[in-house]
Amino acid sequence: MSADLMTPRLSASPFSRANPVSKLAAAAVITVVVMLSVDWVSASVVLAAELLLMPVLGVNPWLLFKRGWPLLAAAATGAWATALLAEKTGAVLFQLGPVVFTDDSVAGGIAIGLRSLAVALPGIFLLLTTDPTDLADALAQKLKLPHRFVLGALAAMRLVGLLVEEWRTLGLARRARGVGAENRPLAKAGAFVGQAFGLIVQAIRRATRLAVAMEARGFGAGRRTWARESSYSTVDVWVLLGGVLIAAAAAAAAVAAGTWNFIFV
């Protein structure tokens, strides 16, 4: 996935005002149910619900596609591979030499593809609709995760975003010293390794400097207060309810259709 998945484009939808913890809980419930059974009914119900809810969640479909297309490709590849390799039961649909697709193998492939999308989307929605700072606030204040850890991770995430720009600058700076990437493959590979090493050095340097700056501002010692209060509102009730409803509907539909196959039995 592209690196700018990290930067949410927040819309004014009510969903983006929900507490990140309740979004996290809803996403978790849905994910767990989809993970429990490999079948196309439960996966399609969840996927359909996710796609239908996009306007409510304030997720822009075009943006989602632009940033999430590698995921789509991965799901399609997974589906193809499963259809190709799964047990060949049921009627043969297509055969060309050793390549055989049957009823059941294709159904298995579709289930895998749908399932990977259904599992991935809640997490992506969470990232797309949540400000990282709000997420950190919620994790520390509501879930009581240690603030050193949460704020450290938040600062590190900002640095990761900067590394993309850093990589470009390093490339130019090294070319200026005469060690840029050239046309010959071997030289290119060598230059890449050197630049990657340079990037690691810079990442460590930046992290160290930032740690000093944070320490100088009193970070890390004992108790702290929070400038932004992480709070729950009625939106959170709806978000949780929505998550549970989608999960229940998916399981019920699969059981009714007789496709529910509990992964652990």
Partner: peptide
Amino acid sequence: LQDPESQLVLARVGDEVAFGAENLSVPR
């Protein structure tokens, strides 16, 4: 520090200024 870039911790101006005061346990 000499390089202002390397001391930015947070993504928004207000939060950045609040960071030190939070660490000193100043009431909200």
